[in-house]
Structure formats: structure tokens, C-alpha cells
């Protein structure tokens, strides 16, 4: 079901939605980054761009209180705030699907799932790409196939809207008369949108090939040592990665006989992540940790539907202190393999 909404009616729709939920909209901050922040009266949503941070910041916060306890009793901290995230990109929607799968696979994580159950995703298909975007290669964009409640297409004067779920239909229904029938050539316009948007992407990576190289352990000799030398262990690639889920758990006293168990972002590029109580670390050399991260992102999944744990957002390339990240590592790996033949 495709509907149309006038572009200048979107704020009105969001205002209606904010009666029942906290609506997060893209906001531009000092320096030009666009981030999701709760909608405030009088502030319009910024132009859609790749968000500086993915929805992970909200779904799986950097510091997440899991359980508060006193004496011998623990009480889980469940965040059931109704949230609507507006303006996500398709890569981020794909990432949320990966998070959902991870946090319900072997154990239903109550803290994550409570937040997720009360969250709706309004995705904006990408009309343009950042230099470091490679969602086409990762198979997640620039138009989302699934993982959204509503997907919007910015056609200038109007936006086309497609519901992906029953909840999405309900969100559109809240817009009432703001949504009307699409123009007769809507399908052609959507195809044109997709064609233009795909053509605009500059970075293309042969991830299937890299996946095979990594799974076959066919990297050139000392490849990962060369990567590790330049990895200063800032953790930024994993912290910003929309699909990295590693965490540490730490208890903190809050008063006499009281405390809180907190989940903190962690990353496999740090030695302490796998160091054992004896002091032995199966991934002591930093090169093994770098290799592990890329194995996990590109080679670790057996699913044919989602072969990669990388959604092609390119944030790791932009936040790396030494400008490594997925694009440069993959490029160097392919060059290295070509060169060693």
C-alpha cells in the first residue's frame, strides 16, 4: 500500500505521532553531524542524511542499567518508553534487524527487547550517499527491503510512504487526511528514485569475495599485523558500528546495601575483552583481534539472507582515528591478494 503525503505536512504528522510517543527526528548539531534527538516544538527535522550515530545509541545505550538491587532482591530495569525513530536510513533498519536477532537468539534479553517492543521505525530511503556509504555492496540499501514500519521516499514536493508492518499502517492512519493517494506514475517515480540513488553511490566493495578470502584464511602473510600496527585501539569502529553488540557487565554500589548492574559498550579490539582470569589471552596479539573483528563482520554468518554483519554504513571508516575502517581494510586486502598472485 503506497500513500502520498505533502512534504510540508510531515511535521504535522510527526506532531500527531508525538502525542503517543517520543518522536526522534534528525537534528543538525554544531559541526554538521546529523543525529536523532527528541522532536522539540518549533524545530523542524533536519534534511535526511546518514546519521552520525545509529539507533544503537538508543536501543543499546553506552551505559545501560540492567538490574537495580538491594539486600537480596534484584529488580530488572525495563525501559518501556514509546519511541518512534523518524528518518533512519535503510542500513540502520537492517542493523536493527540484526540486533533483534542477536538479542533474542539464545536468550531473550529483557532489557533490549523491552525497549525494542516499544519502538517504531520510520525509514527514509536514501536519495543520496555519503562518500563512505557502501550499502549497495552490503545489500542493505539505498532502499530498504524490510525492517521498517514505514518507509518514506522523498520526491521533493511530496513523499511517498509505504507501510512495512501493521504498526506502520497504524502510524500512517494517525496522519489521517494528510495521507492521500499516490500520483498515477508513483511506481515509475519510485523506480527512478532507486536508479538515481544507486547511481549516486561512489564506494563499491566486493564483500562476497572478501568473505571467501577471510573464511578460507587466504589473506596475504602478515596482513592483519599491518592492520593492527595502525589500529590505536580507540574502539570507535565497534562503538559506532550499528551491529556491534559486545558488552561488559559491571556492578556499581549506589548506597548502603544497594547497587546497580550496568551493561557497558565493549569491543573485541581490546585485549581485556578475551583475557581470561589466569591472565592468558587467546587473542593476545592485536592482529588476532583485528582479524576477528573483520571475520565476524564479513565472514561469520552462515545466513544466505544476511551474509554480512556489516550493513555498509561506513561509520567505522569515518571515525577511525587513523582512517582505517572497513573500506580501507577491504581495499588493502583485495589489493594484497591480487598482488600476491
Amino acid at each position: 500500500m503506497i500513500k502520498a503525503i505533502a512534504t510540508n505536512s510531515i511535521d504535522g504528522w510527526l506532531k500527531r505521532l508525538s502525542a503517543q510517543a517520543v518522536v526522534f527526528v534528525p537534528q543538525r548539531r554544531t559541526g554538521g553531524d546529523v543525529v536523532l534527538e527528541p522532536m522539540q516544538p518549533g524545530r523542524r527535522a533536519a534534511h535526511y542524511r546518514r546519521l552520525a550515530e545509529s539507533p544503537k545509541r538508543i536501543l543499546l545505550p553506552q551505559v545501560d542499567e540492567l538490574v537495580r538491587f538491594e539486600a537480596n532482591r534484584g529488580r530488572p530495569v525495563l525501559d518501556e518508553t514509546q519511541r518512534i525513530l523518524f528518518g533512519l536510513r535503510p542500513c540502520d533498519a537492517a542493523a536493527v534487524a540484526i540486533l533483534d536477532e542477536f538479542f533474542s537468539r539464545d536468550f531473550a534479553d529483557p532489557n533490549y527487547l523491552a525497549r525494542r517492543r516499544h519502538m517504531r521505525l520510520i525509514v527514509a530511503a536514501c536519495p543520496e550517499s555519503a562518500e563512505s556509504c557502501f550499502c549497495l555492496s552490503a545489500g542493505t540499501g539505498p532502499v530498504a527491503a524490510d525492517g521498517f514500519d514505514v518507509q518514506l521516499f522523498d520526491l521533493g514536493e511530496i513523499h511517498l510512504a509505504a507501510a512495512g508492518t501493521e504498526e506502520g499502517k497504524a502510524l500512517m492512519a494517525r496522519g489521517g487526511e494528510l495521507f492521500g493517494d499516490p500520483p498515477p506514475d508513483a511506481q515509475q517515480q519510485l523506480a527512478e528514485f532507486r536508479r538515481k540513488s544507486e547511481a549516486a553511490q561512489q564506494t563499491h566493495l566486493d564483500l562476497d569475495r572478501v568473505r571467501k578470502i577471510i573464511r578460507d584464511r587466504a589473506e596475504p602473510a602478515h596482513f592483519w599485523e599491518g592492520v593492527a600496527d595502525r589500529c590505536l585501539m580507540c574502539g570507535g569502529c565497534a562503538y559506532l558500528c550499528p551491529t556491534c553488540t559486545c558488552y561488559d557487565v559491571a556492578d556499581q554500589p549506589t548506597g548502603p546495601g544497594q547497587g546497580v548492574r550496568r551493561r557497558l559498550w565493549d569491543t573485541c579490539v581490546l585485549g581485556g575483552f578475551t583475557r581470561e582470569a589466569s591472565g592468558h589471552n587467546p587473542r593476545e596479539p592485536q592482529s588476532l583481534r583485528c582479524a576477528h573483528r573483520y571475520l565476524h563482520k564479513l565472514g561469520g554468518s552462515d545466513s544466505s539472507e544476511r551474509p554480512f554483519r556489516c550493513v555498509g554504513c561506513g561509520r567505522c571508516a569515518d571515525t577511525c582515528i587513523t582512517r582505517l575502517g572497513m573500506i580501507r581494510v577491504v581495499t588493502e586486502l583485495l589489493e594484497g591478494v591480487a598482488g600476491s598472485k
Binding site: R29, T30, A52, E53, L232, M233, C234, G236, D318
Partner: peptide, 15 residues
């Protein structure tokens, strides 16, 4: 969070 645009940080931070 790191901040893009800052002349030193340029969207990155150390651990």
C-alpha cells in the same frame, strides 16, 4: 559521542 567537523577530533576519539 565523537563530533564531526572539529579540527582536531574530526569525528574520532581515543578510548
Amino acid at each position: 559521542s565523537p563530533v564531526g567537523g572539529h579540527p582536531v577530533a574530526q569525528g574520532s576519539l581515543c578510548v
